Amino acid sequence: MLDRRGPNNTDLFGADIAVTVTVEAPTQKMIKTALVQLKVSNSFFVTLEARQLDDAISNSITRDISFVLAVDREQRGAMRVRTSKSLRDAFAPGNATHLFNSTGWSSFAPWLYDWLSCHIGAPSDPDNPRSIERILEKLLQPSALPQASAEEILR
């Protein structure tokens, strides 16, 4: 969960969630992460903020792994995905928001197949200390919660 985990209560890396998939074989390991900004669309129209997209694409580590997933309120099960970079490029200079028609974006299932097949979104190097997975591990360390008994929790 990256929602409100960034500076000044913003979404870390302009995303609501990070999804990491690791595939291990005896001689290989593949790891990929997608940073996803979740939005609700109405009849496939969704408004995006330039600031959030700028946060998503502001550095080379996150630029090619950041996406917007629009879930439509009116069309049951309709989910569309597009890269944050391509969406930011569509903004007119100086505009803080932009209304998009997401019907031309990729449907979720084909996007997921392409993402898992490495046609979109670069895989990470599991040994790279600057990989997004290592950065997220360091930034999102679980806070030490005080231990409580079941009775204390129920009370």
Rank of each mutant, 00 (worst) to 15 (best):
63 R>F: 06
22 T>G: 05
36 V>M: 12
94 G>R: 10
94 G>P: 07
113 Y>N: 08
100 F>C: 01
110 P>T: 08
24 E>R: 15
88 R>M: 05
84 S>M: 06
152 E>R: 14
54 D>C: 11
31 I>V: 14
91 F>N: 09
16 D>M: 09
93 P>G: 03
121 G>H: 05
69 L>T: 05
15 A>W: 02
11 D>R: 05
2 L>M: 07
149 S>I: 12
45 F>M: 04
116 L>Y: 07
59 N>W: 02
141 Q>I: 12
104 G>R: 08
130 R>S: 00
145 L>K: 14
33 T>D: 08
119 H>G: 06
98 H>A: 08
108 F>A: 15
142 P>K: 05
32 K>H: 10
73 R>M: 04
129 P>Q: 10
105 W>A: 00
47 T>G: 03
3 D>M: 01
26 P>N: 11
49 E>C: 08
81 V>R: 01
65 I>A: 03
50 A>V: 05
139 L>N: 11
30 M>C: 13
107 S>Y: 09
66 S>I: 03
104 G>M: 03
62 T>L: 02
46 V>A: 07
28 Q>N: 12
86 S>A: 14
86 S>G: 11
12 L>F: 14
64 D>L: 01
101 N>I: 04
84 S>W: 00
7 P>F: 14
150 A>P: 07
81 V>H: 03
120 I>G: 01
122 A>N: 14
14 G>I: 07
85 K>V: 11
120 I>V: 15
105 W>V: 01
118 C>P: 06
63 R>H: 09
40 V>Y: 12
4 R>F: 09
65 I>H: 02
68 V>T: 13
43 S>H: 03
65 I>S: 02
40 V>L: 10
97 T>H: 10
67 F>L: 08
117 S>R: 15
144 A>E: 13
44 F>M: 03
68 V>F: 10
97 T>F: 07
10 T>I: 02
47 T>R: 13
36 V>R: 08
53 L>N: 07
10 T>F: 02
1 M>N: 13
128 N>E: 10
147 Q>P: 04
143 S>K: 15
126 P>A: 09
32 K>I: 04
89 D>C: 00
14 G>P: 05
89 D>K: 13
80 R>F: 11
155 R>E: 15
149 S>T: 15
61 I>N: 07
63 R>A: 11
109 A>W: 10
20 T>V: 09
54 D>G: 13
115 W>G: 06
71 V>K: 11
34 A>H: 04
43 S>P: 02
30 M>V: 15
